[in-house]
Lab assay of single mutants.
Amino acid sequence: MDGTRTSLDIEEYSDTEVQKNQVLTLEEWQDKWVNGKTAFHQEQGHQLLKKHLDTFLKGKSGLRVFFPLCGKAVEMKWFADRGHSVVGVEISELGIQEFFTEQNLSYSEEPITEIPGTKVFKSSSGNISLYCCSIFDLPRTNIGKFDMIWDRGALVAINPGDRKCYADTMFSLLGKKFQYLLCVLSYDPTKHPGPPFYVPHAEIERLFGKICNIRCLEKVDAFEERHKSWGIDCLFEKLYLLTEK
């Protein structure tokens, strides 16, 4: 054995408090879109979701699917093309516009009456609605409950000090017999300040354990050449399924 860690023996890093005071403002996230600093976007979609999607959907149609901090995630069109209703929230209007443009979807925009100064973008087909606002303002819009949440790049982007508020927001959107698919990253948080932030299993239990059954479905090596600039040499991604207790 050469000592290389595999996707099945990932350790939890003990120094989980080192990132707790890290803060990125909404304006800084918007600047990332304006300046093209969106390496977190996956042009081909998320491979773990693609692998498990049909198993999760079980042939159902007409589900309501929520994408927190959606950006221009191509997976939104995957669900819409399968007959589901997609709702996303994203602070960057540019990111939302790029989604519709890159997916060749016509759309309209209208003000969100409950949140002055914000807009919702709706596909002409009517099954994709993307709200351009802070996720913490979203419950004011009465958008209803969801059958499924796809959380990739959301919890790991939320400032650590806001995670409890974020989890409570997610709980307010969950319908009966929900499936909450959650991706988190595992790396040494003493070497990279984030975002994306390190979210250990214990944190998921703390945030969601009282209401959800929590199961880790898969762990994969997600390290890429660009991650060397973070000062790390190891990065794993974990896919969790959260269901109603």
Results as ranks from 00 to 15, higher is better:
2 D>L: 08
3 G>H: 15
3 G>Y: 07
4 T>D: 13
4 T>C: 08
5 R>W: 14
6 T>H: 03
7 S>Q: 14
8 L>F: 15
10 I>A: 10
11 E>M: 03
12 E>F: 13
12 E>M: 11
13 Y>F: 15
14 S>G: 13
15 D>Q: 15
16 T>Y: 07
18 V>R: 09
21 N>L: 13
21 N>V: 13
21 N>W: 11
21 N>R: 08
21 N>M: 13
22 Q>E: 12
24 L>T: 15
24 L>C: 14
25 T>W: 05
27 E>S: 14
27 E>R: 09
28 E>L: 09
28 E>K: 14
28 E>D: 15
29 W>L: 04
30 Q>A: 11
30 Q>N: 05
30 Q>D: 13
30 Q>I: 12
30 Q>V: 11
31 D>Q: 02
31 D>P: 02
31 D>R: 10
33 W>K: 04
33 W>I: 05
33 W>R: 04
34 V>K: 03
34 V>L: 07
34 V>M: 12
35 N>M: 12
36 G>C: 14
37 K>D: 07
37 K>H: 14
38 T>Q: 12
38 T>C: 09
39 A>E: 04
41 H>T: 09
43 E>W: 06
46 H>N: 15
47 Q>T: 10
49 L>Y: 06
50 K>N: 12
52 H>A: 03
54 D>F: 04
55 T>A: 11
55 T>F: 08
56 F>H: 07
56 F>W: 09
56 F>G: 07
57 L>G: 10
59 G>D: 12
59 G>H: 04
60 K>Y: 11
60 K>I: 06
60 K>P: 05
60 K>T: 13
60 K>C: 13
61 S>M: 09
63 L>N: 06
63 L>D: 02
64 R>I: 01
66 F>N: 01
67 F>D: 02
69 L>P: 04
69 L>V: 05
70 C>R: 05
71 G>I: 03
71 G>C: 03
72 K>T: 07
72 K>R: 06
73 A>S: 01
73 A>V: 01
73 A>I: 02
74 V>R: 10
74 V>W: 03
75 E>N: 08
75 E>T: 03
76 M>V: 02
76 M>W: 03
76 M>L: 04
76 M>E: 01
77 K>W: 02
77 K>M: 11
78 W>Y: 09
78 W>E: 05
79 F>G: 00
80 A>C: 12
80 A>M: 09
80 A>L: 08
80 A>V: 11
81 D>C: 05
81 D>G: 04
82 R>M: 06
83 G>K: 02
84 H>L: 05
85 S>V: 13
87 V>C: 10
87 V>P: 00
88 G>T: 00
89 V>C: 13
89 V>L: 05
89 V>P: 01
92 S>E: 02
93 E>Q: 14
94 L>P: 05
97 Q>S: 12
97 Q>H: 12
101 T>S: 10
101 T>K: 15
102 E>M: 02
102 E>L: 10
103 Q>Y: 11
103 Q>L: 05
103 Q>S: 10
105 L>A: 03
107 Y>W: 05
107 Y>Q: 00
107 Y>G: 01
107 Y>R: 04
109 E>K: 14
109 E>H: 03
110 E>C: 08
110 E>R: 08
112 I>N: 15
113 T>R: 10
114 E>C: 12
114 E>S: 13
114 E>Q: 10
114 E>W: 05
115 I>R: 04
120 V>S: 08
121 F>P: 00
121 F>N: 01
121 F>S: 01
121 F>I: 05
122 K>V: 12
124 S>G: 13
125 S>Q: 09
128 I>N: 00
128 I>K: 00
128 I>F: 03
129 S>V: 10
129 S>C: 04
130 L>K: 01
131 Y>W: 08
131 Y>P: 00
133 C>I: 12
133 C>S: 06
133 C>T: 12
133 C>M: 07
133 C>F: 03
135 I>G: 00
135 I>S: 00
136 F>E: 03
136 F>A: 02
138 L>R: 00
138 L>A: 12
139 P>Y: 04
139 P>M: 04
140 R>M: 03
142 N>C: 14
144 G>P: 14
146 F>A: 02
147 D>W: 01
148 M>W: 09
149 I>Q: 01
150 W>F: 13
150 W>N: 00
150 W>T: 00
151 D>G: 00
152 R>M: 07
152 R>W: 04
152 R>I: 12
153 G>L: 13
154 A>C: 04
154 A>D: 00
155 L>K: 00
155 L>D: 01
155 L>H: 00
160 P>T: 03
160 P>C: 05
161 G>E: 07
162 D>C: 09
163 R>H: 06
164 K>D: 11
164 K>Y: 11
165 C>T: 15
165 C>L: 11
166 Y>M: 02
166 Y>W: 01
168 D>V: 08
169 T>L: 13
169 T>Q: 10
170 M>S: 00
171 F>T: 14
171 F>K: 12
175 G>R: 07
176 K>C: 10
177 K>H: 07
177 K>E: 08
179 Q>S: 10
182 L>G: 00
183 C>G: 05
186 S>E: 11
189 P>H: 13
189 P>W: 09
190 T>V: 12
190 T>P: 13
191 K>D: 13
192 H>A: 07
193 P>M: 15
194 G>V: 03
195 P>L: 01
195 P>Q: 01
195 P>T: 05
196 P>C: 01
197 F>L: 03
198 Y>S: 04
198 Y>P: 15
199 V>F: 05
199 V>Q: 02
200 P>G: 15
201 H>G: 12
201 H>I: 01
201 H>Q: 15
201 H>Y: 13
202 A>G: 11
202 A>Q: 08
203 E>S: 08
204 I>Q: 01
205 E>T: 08
205 E>Y: 01
206 R>W: 07
207 L>Q: 02
207 L>A: 05
209 G>V: 07
209 G>S: 05
210 K>M: 14
210 K>R: 15
211 I>W: 15
211 I>Y: 01
211 I>D: 15
212 C>V: 10
212 C>R: 02
214 I>R: 01
215 R>N: 14
215 R>Y: 13
216 C>W: 08
216 C>G: 09
217 L>P: 01
217 L>G: 01
218 E>I: 04
218 E>Y: 12
218 E>D: 03
219 K>M: 05
219 K>C: 15
219 K>R: 15
221 D>Q: 07
221 D>F: 02
222 A>T: 14
223 F>Y: 08
226 R>H: 01
226 R>L: 14
226 R>N: 11
227 H>F: 04
227 H>G: 07
228 K>D: 15
229 S>T: 02
229 S>E: 08
229 S>Q: 15
229 S>I: 02
230 W>L: 06
230 W>E: 06
231 G>M: 03
231 G>D: 14
231 G>W: 03
231 G>C: 09
232 I>M: 05
233 D>P: 06
233 D>I: 09
234 C>P: 07
236 F>G: 07
238 K>P: 03
239 L>C: 08
240 Y>M: 08
240 Y>G: 01
243 T>W: 05
244 E>W: 08
245 K>E: 11
245 K>T: 09
